[in-house]
C-alpha cells in the first residue's frame, strides 16, 4: 500500500500514521507543528482549527486519510514573524490575547472569514467565531483585531 501523502503549508509530506488517525495528531506529533492545539478532541472548542483550502475546519477528529487531496494550511503557514499575515499583524497590534491558547483557532477562523468577507460586521464576526472558545475573555480585542485584519488585507491591495 502506498504511503499516505498530505499537503501541509504547501509542502507534500508522507504520513506514517494510519488513515483513521486524527489530522491534529499527525500535524503535532509527526510533523512537529505547534500552531494547531488540543483543546477538547470533540470539535467543541476550535483550538485545533486549520484551513482546508480556504475553509476553517477542526482537525481533532478529522481522519488524516480524508485530507489527502486537500491543501492544509496551519497557523505556521499563514505567515511568519518577519512576514506576518494580516491577521497575525492585527492580533499583535490589538494585543488580542491573554494566555494565547485559543489564538490558533481565532487566527485561523479570522483568516477564513476575511478571505470571504472584506468588511465583516460584528454579527458576521460573531457568527464566524462563535464556536471558537476563549476562556480568558479576550473576545473584545479579538473582534477589534479581526476588523483591523480585514482592513489591512483589503486596503493594502486596493
Amino acid at each position: 500500500m502506498a504511503a499516505l501523502v498530505i499537503t501541509v503549508n504547501g509542502v507534500r509530506r508522507e504520513v506514517a500514521a494510519p488513515a483513521e488517525t486524527p489530522l491534529l495528531s499527525v500535524l503535532r506529533d509527526e510533523l512537529g507543528l505547534n500552531g494547531p492545539r488540543y483543546g477538547c478532541g470533540l470539535e467543541q472548542c476550535g483550538a485545533c482549527l486549520v484551513l482546508r483550502g480556504a475553509e476553517a475546519v477542526a482537525s481533532c477528529r478529522l481522519p488524516v486519510g480524508e485530507v489527502a487531496d486537500a491543501q492544509i494550511t496551519t497557523l505556521e503557514g499563514l505567515g511568519t514573524l518577519d512576514e506576518p499575515h494580516p491577521v497575525q499583524q492585527a492580533f499583535l497590534e490589538e494585543q488580542a490575547a491573554q494566555c494565547g491558547y485559543c489564538s490558533n483557532g481565532m487566527l485561523v477562523a479570522a483568516a477564513a472569514l476575511i478571505w470571504r468577507t472584506r468588511r465583516p460586521t460584528d454579527e458576521q464576526i460573531c457568527a464566524a467565531l462563535d464556536d471558537v472558545l476563549c476562556r480568558c475573555g479576550s473576545h473584545l480585542r479579538i473582534m477589534r483585531a479581526v476588523k483591523r485584519a480585514a482592513a489591512l488585507m483589503w486596503e493594502e491591495q486596493a
Binding site: Y38, G79, P84, Q88, Q95
Partner: peptide, 21 residues
C-alpha cells in the same frame, strides 16, 4: 508595552509545555 510572548504565540512557535518534545 506590547506583550513579549504574543508574537510567538500568533505564529506557532513552541510556547507551552504542551509543545515540549
Amino acid at each position: 508595552a506590547g506583550r513579549l510572548d504574543l508574537a510567538d504565540k500568533f505564529s506557532g512557535a513552541a510556547s507551552y509545555v504542551h509543545d515540549l518534545r
